[in-house]
Amino acid sequence: MDMKDVRKTAKERMKGYCRMCPICDGRACSGEVPGMGGLGTGVAFRNNVTALKAVQLNMRLLHDATEPDTSTKALGLDLSLPVMAAPIGGVSFNMGGAISEDAYIDAVLGGCKSRGIIGATGDGVPPFIVDAAMGGVKKLDGHGIPFIKPWDGAELKEKFDLAFSTGAKIYGMDVDAAGLITLRKMGRPVSPKPPVELKKIIDMVHEKGAKFILKGVMTVDEAEKAIEIGADAIVVSNHGGRVLDHAPGTATVLPAIADAVKGKICIIVDGGVRDGVDVLKMIALGAELVMIGRPFSQAAVGGEQEGVEAFIDQLTAQLTQAMVLTGCQTIDSVGRHILYGMTK
Rank of each mutant, 00 (worst) to 15 (best):
A177Y: 00
V205E: 05
M36H: 05
A51Y: 01
G97F: 10
T250D: 03
P150Q: 10
F93G: 04
L52W: 02
H143Q: 14
V55A: 07
K169M: 05
V91P: 02
A98T: 05
D2Y: 01
H239W: 02
E101F: 13
K4G: 02
E155A: 05
E309N: 13
L339C: 02
G303I: 09
G89H: 11
M323C: 11
A28L: 14
M291K: 04
A98F: 03
V236Y: 00
S100W: 14
V301G: 07
I312H: 06
A223W: 05
G276P: 10
G40L: 13
G179R: 08
D161W: 06
T70R: 02
H337D: 15
D69V: 03
L81V: 10
Y171A: 04
G26Y: 08
D174M: 06
T326D: 02
L57F: 08
V273A: 01
M20Y: 00
K8F: 13
L75C: 13
I145M: 13
T219S: 14
K225G: 01
V43Q: 09
H206L: 08
R274D: 01
G272N: 06
G271Q: 04
V279S: 03
V43I: 09
D174S: 14
K200G: 15
M291W: 06
S297R: 01
I227K: 07
P255K: 04
V125L: 12
S80V: 00
A74R: 13
S71A: 11
G286C: 09
A10S: 11
C24H: 10
F45R: 00
L39V: 14
A154K: 15
P150K: 05
F296N: 08
F45L: 11
G276D: 05
T121E: 00
A210G: 10
L162R: 14
A54I: 00
L289P: 07
R184H: 08
G271A: 02
I267T: 05
Q314G: 07
K113F: 09
